[in-house]
């Protein structure tokens, strides 16, 4: 226990870094994922094709590969960044976007087709149908699965610790190495701080689910 209390500032630092990584990657992934889902249902075949390939590739490969690409391959292609944190954000958001795209797409499919037909029949264009009618209804059904994906994102952000980014898991590893006699306590402390992020997200999911359900 002492190990945790003595290193509280370090844990707190790691907690904030993880929060930052997750929040930034989460926002980018939500935007990118929604765009990918829109492309997936668009009338343009090329967009549909691109979105399908993107989602299938990213969703079906391990996150570590995304990290290797972002941290090692991208700089060789000329994309340079000062900190590995940028690579971590790129990897986490592009990877998570694939899952978000799938969730949003299933939400879009859950909106009865008559809603889109009615919107088209009063003269709305594709973008308007999507933005005004389909997505607002789809996002409500999609909130719970989206939050599940964000919980996974918080946990996935720990992979960044293996790529020289000091976040919660990175600090935890440092502490474990420095305190060989108290590894269990150190790891329990790390787990506790992850729970501090993920449990409220889970509670938020069930609250939102109850509030935004639309009657049909």
């Amino acid at each position: 226990m002492d190990v945790i209390l003595e290193n509280l500032p370090l844990y707190w630092n790691g907690f904030l870094r993880t929060l930052f990584l997750s929040a930034v990657s989460g926002v980018i992934a939500l935007v990118l994922g929604t765009l990918l889902a829109a492309a997936r249902v668009s009338p343009v075949a090329a967009l549909r094709g691109f979105s399908t390939v993107y989602v299938e590739v990213l969703r079906n490969t391990p996150l570590t590969i995304a990290f290797f690409f972002a941290a090692i391959v991208l700089p060789r292609l000329g994309v340079k960044f000062e900190q590995f944190e940028v690579a971590a954000i790129i990897a986490l958001s592009t990877y998570t976007a694939a899952f978000i795209a799938e969730a949003v797409r299933s939400g879009v499919n859950s909106v009865p087709v008559g809603q889109a037909e009615a919107a088209r029949s009063i003269g709305m264009k594709f973008g308007q149908v999507l933005n005004l009618i389909i997505l607002p209804q789809a996002l409500r059904t999609v909130v719970p699965p989206l939050i599940n994906i964000l919980i996974a994102l918080v946990k996935n952000s720990s992979v960044a610790g293996a790529f020289f980014v000091l976040e919660l898991f990175g600090y935890g590893r440092q502490l474990a190495n420095a305190n060989g006699d108290a590894v269990i306590a150190v790891l329990l402390g790390t787990a506790f701080f992850y729970l501090l992020l993920t449990v409220p997200l889970g509670i938020l999911a069930s609250t939102v689910e109850r509030k935004v359900a639309i009657a049909r």
């Binding site: 009865p112 009618i133 209804q137």
Partner: peptide, 14 residues
């Protein structure tokens, strides 16, 4: 310019 009324109403639920 063409009004359409459906069997299942299709009012925007939200």
């Amino acid at each position: 310019d063409v009004g359409m009324v459906f069997q299942s109403f299709n009012l925007f639920a939200h």
